[in-house]
């Protein structure tokens, strides 16, 4: 699959992300694809830090910082006001973390999807509350260390893509920064498929929270896909599933080996994770 990324200069250098941050990379492909006729809603998160403290901004568009739990409602309010003013061209996008999406922001997201709000909602999923120093969210996977699950998380990651598919929204996709063309293509597609809420959950490795070297973000991202931990796919109208990049027989252990958050895993733990990933993939594969 070849897709030519066409970047419009919306996201700028000089932002305050950690060197090597995958989230900044994701924001670049998202905003530079959406273009300047966009308004972004960002809740408290690393994304808000990266967007810059007032009066500075790394984003050459209006950015509204919402409360943590209200990104979708806030984005919908903007879109409805634009509609009321006869503006049918400006894209409204909410860009939130996994805590702001899977946990505290889920109620307002689910309702915005059900109401068919004409917005794009992108979750930059780094599998925990990384901005507050790595605490567990419901996006944290089984057995991963966080500061609130020091012995490893005892329950699996919430399956947000399937939950959103169950809302029968026009478009949802999984993406990750190790596949930038795929991410940018999905953002462009989400922008095109108006008439309801479009949802993208993008896995973005967190250098500090996952315990990986500054240069390892893209590699870990690709291993997440190749090991089957995070398959890349799209769903239109809740039923039409398309697989973009699936597992390539890479053991889950190869993925976890690069991350300090998994360094406490025993051989038995590895076996457990492999089984969980295999089971999830078997269940998902039936839908393509």
């Amino acid at each position: 699959m070849s897709y030519q990324i066409e970047e419009q200069k919306v996201f700028n250098s000089g932002h305050s992300a950690c060197p090597g941050c995958s989230e900044a990379l994701a924001i670049r492909f998202i905003l530079n694809t959406l273009g300047p006729d966009t308004i972004a809603v960002v809740p408290p998160s690393c994304i808000a830090i990266i967007s810059g403290p007032q009066p500075l901004s790394s984003m050459r568009i209006p950015v509204y910082q919402s409360t943590l739990e209200s990104s979708a409602a806030s984005a919908a309010g903007i879109k409805r006001a634009l509609t009321a003013q006869g503006n049918d061209h400006t894209t409204v996008v909410a860009i939130a973390g996994d805590g702001g999406t899977y946990d505290i922001g889920f109620q307002s997201l689910s309702s915005a999807a059900e109401r068919g709000e004409d917005i794009i909602y992108i979750c930059l999923d780094n599998e925990g509350y990384m901005n507050t120093g790595s605490q567990k969210s419901s996006a944290t996977p089984s057995l991963a260390y966080t500061t609130s699950t020091p012995a490893g998380k005892g329950t699996p990651k919430k399956n947000m893509a399937e939950i959103m598919a169950a809302h029968d929204i026009p478009y949802l996709a999984t993406a990750t920064t190790g596949y930038p063309e795929d991410l940018a293509r999905k953002v462009a597609k989400a922008q095109r498929l108006t008439g309801g809420l479009r949802f993208i959950v993008a896995l973005v490795p967190c250098l500090d929270g996952w315990g990986i070297p500054d240069s390892a973000g893209p590699k870990v991202s690709r291993l997440a896909v190749e090991s089957g931990v995070f398959p890349l796919y799209e769903v239109e109208n809740g039923v039409n599933y398309t697989l973009n990049f699936g597992p390539k027989d890479v053991p889950v252990a190869d993925y976890t080996a690069l991350q300090k958050r998994y360094r406490h895993l025993t051989a038995k733990d590895q076996e457990f994770l492999q089984k969980e990933v295999d089971g999830n993939w078997a269940r998902l594969a039936k839908k393509f």
Partner: peptide, 14 residues
């Protein structure tokens, strides 16, 4: 909560 969240942004959008 969401009603007020949307009210705020709609107002800020003019």
């Amino acid at each position: 909560h969401s009603a007020m969240a949307a009210a705020i942004t709609a107002s800020l959008a003019g």
